[in-house]
């Protein structure tokens, strides 16, 4: 019997007597980092996301002033204003004299919490239903597919607004209202993947070996749909943040005085002709955050699952 140790392996004209002696290729992580370093847009995306995450984790470290401190002496001061105590307001102040920069930094918390929570909850629900529909087929698939079609037809923002208005505006209800519609994105992708996976030999082999449906779903199918799920989740994170901002903008977001980017934009609307900075800066930060997530998502898609490239279209 030939053992692994005794085997000789020939690679590129050189004969190795031990597999351990063979030169090891770079690990997946090294390859991913190398690919990241080669892509300036992805690096830019990483930078934007890192800044926002660090802001959200420790806003008090970065915010120069208290985001809630009001003073009518500072009513609508332009960017760069310095008050009598020598405190600088780099991005100006709003109609209540609050510092825009500090509010933007604190506002990153709500955006990230809603974004990450909706992606996680809708991801878990969507992946589960997608696997069940794809693996079982038949009436279960028909029911789940029709539910997906129905949710697609209902106008998203109106449904979310209506739900938040009925349930009450709170962080938890906003997450519920967004999740009710967004799980379908994951369910559709996973269902399609499982449809082709279930015909493959490793699945029929597992079935022949007597594995139960639950074991096949969790042990054999789930790991195989994880990479596309992660890609879809990253690409959707930015969209969730825009939806949260839209709800705040329309007046059904997390209630004041908690700063939110969408809420700041809504407040700035009344002062477009006198104080453009109130609406301008939160929007720029919102856009760069979403852009950063999309650029990182593109990079993740290319290293984890290049077949999904068309999803970005």
């Amino acid at each position: 019997m030939v053992t692994e140790k005794a085997a000789t392996v020939a690679v590129g004209g050189t004969t190795f007597h031990d597999v351990d002696e063979m030169p090891q290729g770079p690990s997946d992580l090294t390859l991913a980092i190398r690919e990241l370093m080669r892509r300036p847009p992805a690096l830019f995306g990483l930078f934007c996301c890192t800044v926002v995450i660090v802001w959200a984790l420790m806003p008090w470290t970065f915010a120069p002033l208290d985001p809630l401190e009001q003073s009518l002496d500072r009513y609508l001061k332009p960017p760069g204003y310095v008050d009598a105590q020598g405190r600088a307001y780099w991005l100006g102040t709003d109609q209540q004299g609050r510092d825009i920069l500090s509010r933007i930094i604190y506002g990153s918390r709500i955006s990230l919490i809603v974004g990450i929570a909706t992606v996680l909850v809708s991801g878990i629900i969507g992946v589960f239903l997608g696997i069940v529909a794809g693996y079982n087929g038949g009436w279960i698939d028909t029911v789940i597919s029709r539910v997906i079609d129905t949710m697609l037809a209902v106008p998203f923002i109106l449904l979310a607004m209506g739900l938040v208005a009925i349930l009450g505006a709170s962080l938890q209800n906003i997450i519920i209202a967004i999740t009710i519609r967004t799980w379908i994105i994951y369910a559709r992708v996973v269902r399609g993947e499982v449809f082709s996976l279930r015909e493959q030999e490793f699945v029929s082999g597992a079935r022949a070996a007597g594995c139960g449906a639950m074991r096949i779903l969790l042990v054999y199918l789930l790991p195989n749909v994880m990479s596309s799920t992660i890609v879809v989740a990253t690409l959707n994170l930015g969209r969730m943040i825009i939806i949260e901002a839209s709800l705040s903008f329309l007046g059904v977001g997390v209630p004041p005085p908690t700063p939110t980017w969408g809420g700041m934009l809504a407040e700035g609307r009344a002062f477009l002709d006198t104080a453009w900075w109130i609406a301008f800066f939160p929007g720029v930060v919102l856009m760069l955050t979403v852009l950063g997530m999309n650029l990182l998502g593109d990079w993740l898609r290319d290293i984890l699952d290049p077949r999904l490239k068309r999803l970005g279209d």
Partner: peptide, 22 residues
């Protein structure tokens, strides 16, 4: 198109108002 997909459209609306209307 990358910026277009990342930009919240209500913010674009406000910016268009500032530039073209105000």
């Amino acid at each position: 198109s990358m910026f277009g997909q990342s930009m919240p459209n209500f913010w674009l609306g406000l910016m268009l108002i500032i530039i073209f209307a105000v």
